[in-house]
């Protein structure tokens, strides 16, 4: 008996009508999208693009259900933007959306850079790349600074081997995993120019803008709030100034720099509190960041050479 043979009776025929709202509620992406809006500050264009992609995939799901789909869509993406603009964070959310919509089976993210894909000697690269691919199957493979895979100055570079395996899997195993390439916009553009195979396999390009000063402040307040801290009013003003100055300095990495700055500020606050052991503290004292905790930062041009 052939289990795959079905007769076109009422049960097996595709539905003539589908209920969009029921489908939307059933997959539960509304909650993920709202959470994305709520928890991530700014990123307006990114959020819009993700809503568009989610809409497209929801319709694709309906088309599948109605027997109108023509194969699985390409879902590989590229995320371009400066460091700390939220690419990794958004990749995690995308994975969860793809999972809820049924376009990946598990919904986990495996995040790698060149070092995890490319080997040191002949015969080392293919197994390494495959190892990573196997772990990513069923989910999303996030390749940070993907352009380092391609080193044209060295014609024997093993990166090329990794690229070829990746391209093959991106093409032939689209049901098994989604690849997201991430990195600086300009370098990524050059990478795509030299590797047209990648560009043609990528369905969605999403650009991550830098955060404005106001957004960085909101991000800072959110991060503090999460850890049960908050700025005193003068500390908030000081941190606004901090942001303005830090942005002009080298190695500024948007929200990541904010996270790091807050770590150091909490350290200074703890030191300030500990300095007076005879004092009794209220919860408010322990939660409050004072202006001095911010202003002691090296960013304000104090001579102290330590990394503060």
């Amino acid at each position: 008996m052939d289990a795959t043979a079905t007769t076109p009776n009422g049960d097996d025929a595709p539905p003539a009508r589908v209920d969009l709202r029921a489908e939307f509620n059933e997959v539960g992406i509304g909650e993920v999208l709202d959470q994305l809006d709520r928890e991530l500050v700014g990123l307006k264009p990114v959020k819009t693009r993700i809503r568009e992609i989610a809409a497209l995939l929801l319709v694709e799901r309906l088309r599948k259900r109605m027997g109108l789909a023509t194969g699985n869509p390409t879902l590989h993406m590229s995320f371009t933007g400066n460091p700390g603009t939220g690419k990794t964070t958004v990749a995690l959310r995308i994975a969860s959306i793809l999972h809820k919509l049924g376009f990946v089976r598990r919904g986990h993210v495996v995040s790698v850079t060149r070092d995890e894909l490319v080997g040191q000697y002949i015969g080392h690269t293919a197994p390494k790349t495959k190892e990573v691919l196997k772990k990513a199957m069923g989910g999303v493979l996030f390749i940070d600074e993907a352009y380092y895979l391609y080193r044209p100055e060295n014609e024997r570079d093993y990166g090329q081997e990794a690229i070829e395996i990746l391209l093959q899997v991106m093409e032939n195993q689209r049901d098994d995993l989604v690849v997201i390439l991430a990195g600086y916009a300009d370098r990524m553009e050059k990478f795509f120019q030299s590797n047209p195979g990648f560009r043609s396999r990528i369905a969605h390009h999403i650009d991550f803008p830098d955060y404005t000063d106001g957004e960085l402040l909101t991000i800072a307040e959110g991060m503090l709030n999460e850890q049960n801290y908050h700025f005193a009013p003068e500390a908030k003003a000081a941190f606004e100034r901090y942001i303005g100055i830090r942005k002009t300095q080298p190695l500024f990495a948007n929200a990541r720099s904010i996270r790091n700055a807050l770590d150091r500020i909490r350290l200074r606050q703890a030191n300030r509190l500990i300095a007076d052991l005879d004092r009794s503290l209220t919860a408010e004292d322990i939660m409050t960041i004072e202006a001095g905790d911010v202003l002691a930062s090296r960013v304000f041009g104090k001579e102290d050479g330590r990394d503060r």
């Binding site: 089976r105 986990h108 691919l133 196997k134 199957m137 989910g139």
Partner: peptide, 10 residues
């Protein structure tokens, strides 16, 4: 591994 596809590939 999270998914059988990796094993099936091998």
């Amino acid at each position: 591994l999270q998914d059988a596809a990796g094993v099936m590939m091998e």
